[in-house]
Design a protein around this nucleic acid. Structure first.
Length: 258
DNA sequence: ATGGTTGTTGCACAA
């Protein structure tokens, strides 16, 4: 069994104790982290090494930052874009091959609001990801792009679709951008195992949203069909959102059969 | 319509 997790930790510095405790409990083989908010030199390599993980980190400090930890090998690491496109100053994408699976840890831009430049950046970022797949990857391979997509795939993934009318995360262009990845050959592995709505991975810190059940499912494991077929179980550990100093995201866990 | 909270850094901004 190969256990993979993706988790937006909202500052690895602030979250390190909670993250290591969680990893001890669940013993995942592959870990994709987003929003480490660390420079590369500040990444706690040793802490994870002592736990048996090889590490790759792509950070910029202060904002963004993505990492991959692996107990099953970490090869062919690539940070950022592999194309001739414009420089992207934001550290949001990291690739590595772990246990025979090409894995990406992705932190898709938030978008902020529909009329914000950052929303345009979000849509372009997703199209650039699709182009990367077209140019460098094989839809028949074992591949997963894991992370915080900042998109709720459909209305089951939002506590109130009405509350997001005119906002980001549920807009038609964002969902279309996600569909472009599906069109290439990726599948939202969670939906292979769960039909019901109301199962969320993110809750705003504000207004007691977690307690009130006001969340969204925006953290996804998007896998090729041949990999998705190996998935035996997908769970979102909402317990990790409870207690003292949680991230605003819960980890998503996938078990793949060998 | 606004507010609410947390993490960065520094007295604002991003989420």
């Amino acid at each position: 069994m190969l256990r993979l997790v993706t988790w937006n930790v909202n500052s690895l510095k602030a979250r390190l104790d909670r993250v290591t405790e969680w990893l001890e409990q669940f013993s995942p083989d592959i870990v994709c982290l987003q929003e480490t908010k660390l420079a590369d030199k500040a990444f706690p390599d040793l802490t994870f090494r002592e736990m048996g993980y090889d590490c790759a980190h792509h950070g910029q400090g202060q904002w963004n930052g993505v990492a991959i930890l692996s107990k099953v090998g970490l090869d062919d690491v690539r940070a950022g874009w592999d194309d001739d496109g414009e420089d992207d100053p934001e550290a949001r994408l990291l690739w590595a091959t772990c246990g025979g699976v090409r894995v990406a840890s992705a932190y898709v831009p938030n978008g902020r609001s529909l009329d914000d430049d950052h929303y345009t950046y979000k849509l372009r970022w997703l199209e650039r990801l699709r182009a990367t797949l077209d140019d460098h990857e094989d839809a028949g391979s074992q591949l997963a792009i894991c992370g915080d997509y900042n998109i709720a795939p459909d209305d089951r993934d939002v506590w109130s679709p009405k509350a997001f009318e005119g906002a980001t995360h549920t807009s038609e262009p964002e969902r279309a951008a996600l569909a472009r990845l599906e069109e290439w050959g990726l599948e939202d592995v969670f939906r292979r195992h769960h039909d019901v709505g109301g199962l969320f991975s993110w809750w705003d810190y504000r207004g007691g949203d977690f307690h009130q059940g006001r969340g969204m499912r925006i953290d996804l494991v998007m896998a090729t069909r041949s990999l998705a077929e190996r998935s035996a179980m997908v769970v979102i550990d909402r317990n990790a959102r409870k207690g003292k100093q949680p991230s605003d995201h819960a980890p998503v866990v996938v078990d793949f059969t060998d």
